[in-house]
Design a protein around this nucleic acid. Sequence first.
DNA 1: TTTTTATGGTCTATATATAGATCATTTTAT
DNA 2: ATAAAATGATCTATATATAGACCATAAAAA
Lengths: 135, 135
Amino acid sequence: MTILVYIKTIKQFYGLYTDQNRTMPKSITRTYSRYTRDATALLGGLIRAARKERKLTAQELADRAGISRGLLQRIEKGDLKCEIGAVFEVATIVGIKLFDADENTLPKYLSQTRDKLTLLPKSVRHKSRVVFDDF
Amino acid sequence: MTILVYIKTIKQFYGLYTDQNRTMPKSITRTYSRYTRDATALLGGLIRAARKERKLTAQELADRAGISRGLLQRIEKGDLKCEIGAVFEVATIVGIKLFDADENTLPKYLSQTRDKLTLLPKSVRHKSRVVFDDF
DNA sequence: TTTTTATGGTCTATATATAGATCATTTTAT
DNA sequence: ATAAAATGATCTATATATAGACCATAAAAA
């Protein structure tokens, strides 16, 4: 007697597994405002322009940032699903100022914001609205 | 004869599979500059402050942005691995201006940047340095 | 004080972003 | 014109971010 188990890929097994035992969760499609899309596209465009002005190839900049060329392409295109850390790092390398702040003023803004937060209430609490539904 | 197959979790099987058949790829740990880390932390702090000023709970803001409360927590903490789209969307909702631009000026900056890009060379090409290694 | 609720953290399964390879095309230098 | 190289795009496996549930604690209201 022979038992033949043939699973080509993990994905295949994974798919069988999930389909059999769990309901496939709804794929979450995010919506973004125009402002968000424009801002991300602008940042990507600024990065691309700065890269060319500095005569860096995509591969060179990607290497410096420690990311793949493909990811850099997506960043420059304004892809909304890239890690913010990767995007900001690339921007930093080509010399784009975030929040109009240089390396000296940025920490100051940061501590100012932290100070401000200590003054604000720790948690936001809504006044409990009295409901008159009993009548 | 009995063949007993016991796999507790997919992860367990997955681990066995990869260890046996493939070399485990190096887990890529990114490095980020201080400027990048400060900028992300600042944005998170600004979001948190703006949220409290607007008397929104974390859950309320997360719902409006279409994200989970857990993700909002990471964003406010300045986690570098969040999607830039999610971060910018939350910032937009609480009224934080990106690039000091409002909803009218942002598209203008965007088209200006695109115009600039058409003027720049399509691809960056390094002058081929003649190598004298032959001697 | 008591009660209610917001926050902060953990854990798991799923969805998805990323690296890396590959190929076609475009662009620049020679 | 030709060659070399940069770019744009696609594909796959892996790594990892996210949603959602849960719990403990903190904080604000009653």
